[in-house]
């Protein structure tokens, strides 16, 4: 909270420096009824605009802007459909000290799951009926392109022998993340993958799958020998902690990368929209906020695919490295810089 308040004026100063000429010339225009301005942004990202429309008319715009942005990104118990009202999600009594109430992001994940199940039950049914002399078309064809890409370019090329075993996980994680990312861009949606807990849970799956694959491939003895990285025993006191930390940093980086990418995009879009509110200027809205947020929105569409791909790709790579009989983490480090 405090950190955000410190950061925000700095960012504003930069924006101000760019927009001083505009501000000077626009003084008269900004006197117009301000409450209507959300309708301009509504064409771009109606969800965010609608929320901001709800929040902005209050007195302290500058403080409220940060609140609204954070409100949009954070998980909550309230599913808001401004201006149509909001749904309070049910609270569940804590089980074993853990609060397992349904939140906005849980609902989004369920929505994603439902869409996935519908799409893939249709596609799966078509494949069951299809003989291998028939070519797929329509939705089946589109899904097949992605499935074939994950199967050959991600799983087979990174894991190699025995990739079929990990294919269901990689495919599911790819489509799950992709749809979570995309639903975050839909009005009234929320990005479940922009929550560190969600990405962490997915990364934990990758972690366990990687370790189990390594144990199966090398046995317990080989797994422990791998921790010493094949060095002299006198170096073990350094190597073993490094290797153990290495085991955890890979999935941790996976979680942080996805979370940060999805969160950052949304913060940028919302900030661009809020520039026009803070500066109280239609010209800023038309010249800066709308075009730039459209640009970032399109970029976000690309990032949604890219991040889903990178998460899947790195998961496959980690599994491949864990099961490979030689080679080490250097290659992983190279790829992990995405």
């Amino acid at each position: 909270m405090k950190r955000l308040n410190v950061l925000h004026p700095k960012a504003l100063l930069k924006v101000m420096a760019i927009l001083v000429p505009l501000l000077v010339s626009v003084g008269g225009v900004s006197g117009l009824s301000y409450a209507q301005s959300p309708s301009v942004s509504a064409e771009v990202v109606s969800a965010t605009a609608a929320e901001s429309g709800h929040a902005v008319p209050a007195a302290h715009e500058e403080e409220k802007a940060g609140d609204v942005i954070m409100h949009h990104i954070f998980d909550s118990n309230i599913f808001a459909f401004h201006p149509f009202g909001e749904i309070e999600l049910p609270k569940i009594a804590p089980v074993a000290g853990i609060d397992i109430s349904i939140t906005k992001h849980v609902v989004m994940m369920w929505l994603v799951s439902a869409i996935l199940l519908i799409i893939f039950s249709v596609v799966g049914g078509k494949y069951k009926k299809m003989t291998n002399r028939q070519a797929p078309k329509g939705l089946t064809n589109a899904v097949e392109a992605l499935v074939e890409f994950i199967r050959l370019d991600v799983a087979k090329s990174n894991i190699g022998h025995g990739y079929e075993k990990h294919l269901p996980y990689l495919l599911t994680v790819f489509f799950f993340i992709l749809l979570c990312n995309l639903l975050g861009l839909v009005p009234y949606g929320a990005t479940a993958t922009g929550n560190i807990n969600v990405t962490l849970a997915l990364a934990i799956f990758t972690f366990f799958i990687t370790q189990i694959a390594a144990l199966k491939a090398h046995g317990l003895k080989g797994f422990l020998a791998h921790l010493t990285a094949g060095t002299h025993w006198s170096l073990w006191i350094i190597m073993i902690p490094i290797e153990v930390i290495g085991l955890f940093t890979k999935p941790f980086a996976l979680a942080i990368r996805l979370f940060a990418n999805m969160t950052a995009g949304h913060i940028v879009i919302l900030s661009l929209i809020f520039i026009s509110f803070i500066l109280k200027s239609y010209i800023v809205a038309v010249a800066v906020s709308v075009p730039f947020s459209i640009f970032i929105y399109l970029l976000e569409l690309f990032v949604a695919f890219l991040q889903a791909f990178i998460f899947t790709m790195l998961s496959a790579l980690f599994i491949g490295l864990a099961t490979a009989h030689d080679g080490h983490d250097e290659h992983a480090a190279e790829v992990a810089h995405h």
């Binding site: 994940m109 199940l117 893939f120 994680v173 489509f175 929550n195 807990n197 962490l200 997915l202």
Partner: peptide, 23 residues
């Protein structure tokens, strides 16, 4: 938020199992 981690895990595992079967 352990609750969200829990829900993510449960949702993901169920989706994984169903999709593995049907798709």
């Amino acid at each position: 938020n352990p609750g969200l981690i829990f829900w993510t895990a449960v949702t993901f595992v169920i989706v994984l199992l169903i999709l593995k079967k049907i798709a």
